[in-house]
Design a binder for these strands. Structure first.
Lengths: 193, 193
DNA sequence: GCGCGATAGTTTCATATGCAACGACTGTCA
DNA sequence: TGACAGTCGTTGCATATGAAACTATCGCGC
């Protein structure tokens, strides 16, 4: 972790030396930014299509996708397999159940848990969405050579895995948070939220 | 665009044939899903760090980043360069200005426009964040070979570009929307919002 | 059996988001 | 010059989000 110039002796130097470096920072080259832009554009694309054609959101589609694959699942199981927040899963499942696409029953073995599954209508909707989703993916893939597409898929898995590790590392043991990073950043007041 | 079985003659076949295909749909292999998961994890990682260390959001950081690079910009100029919604830019800039990090003045040439720029404190904060951002990017990059990292950067640019084209195509002329996609999907009621 | 900390899921609440409406201003065309 | 369609940026509103609180239940230890 690079140390930022924390000396207070010279405002001039503080502004000139790191600023000379910082001025060269190009947001459009920054990988996290590119990733975010790409993901947002594609999410918008898919969200619009799912919403227009089927009246469901991406979160709801994900829930249906894992239920279509795994049969019945508990909210927790859905949460794991969709990588979504449990609150998001809970709400998506409630909406789908209200729309008659999901069945929900109490888990016989665990009184806290529930089992969600696709109703016959849910199965039909799932079967209708899958080809559309695949076609949209193919439309995206048509923009680059197949080898690039496969590489992108692989690299996204790799970066997500690594990011997951970093997240876990920072969530668990929180040592001297904001110590080394903020020390010396005399930015003054934190922006009001 | 793959045609989905829209025949109505046999509910059995409608359920068996496409479902057999649909059941094999693996969300975790779906590239848009992977992209979203990767982007969300990394955004959380960066958002947490920026917030803890500097009290700003990613949107605010992006505004500062482009102002640090280009000097003064109008809200519209910021919007273009950050790929963010104009509303998001407006609010981020307002918060940063309230925190004393941005200066804002009327544009002499155009009474509708404004000019935003970094205040001296904004410049210092910008100079403090850049090395942190670079260090975090390096931490991420450490998870894969440099060649893979470069490939990922390039492929993200390519996919975002292609997605942008598709978005533009679907936004402009909206011909028979939901015609070919929804035709034959007898999913019944749209999920209530 | 019976506390009691841990777990599953939902709900509450404060914030974030984006579309649409708005006010302010511009440049053009008659 | 003086309407008026178009643009710039902000604000209002309805929805989406997630952290934390809450309810119901579990299963361990005694």
């Amino acid at each position: 972790m690079q140390r930022l110039s924390s000396d207070r002796e010279s405002a001039d130097r503080r502004e000139r030396v790191p600023a000379a470096d910082a001025r060269g920072f190009a947001l459009e080259e920054f990988l996290p930014y590119r990733l975010s832009v790409a993901a947002n554009r594609i999410s918008r694309l898919f969200a619009r299509r799912y919403s227009e054609a089927f009246g469901i959101s991406i979160a709801e589609w994900r829930v249906m996708a894992v239920l279509g694959r795994f049969g019945t699942l508990s909210p927790g199981g859905i949460t794991e397999r969709t990588e979504m927040d449990k609150v998001k899963v809970s709400r998506a499942a409630a909406r789908l159940a209200a729309a008659g696409l999901l069945s929900s029953e109490a888990d016989a073995a665990d009184g806290r848990a529930r089992r969600f599954g696709l109703t016959p209508r849910g199965v039909r909707l799932h079967a209708a969405i899958v080809p559309i989703a695949r076609a949209m993916e193919a439309e995206l893939a048509a923009g680059m050579p197949p080898a690039d597409w496969e590489a992108l898929r692989r690299l996204l898995g790799a970066i997500a895995g690594h990011a997951g590790e970093l997240e876990a590392k920072h969530e668990g043991p929180q040592p001297d948070m904001r110590g080394p990073t903020c020390a010396g950043c005399d930015a003054g007041a934190q922006a009001p939220r």
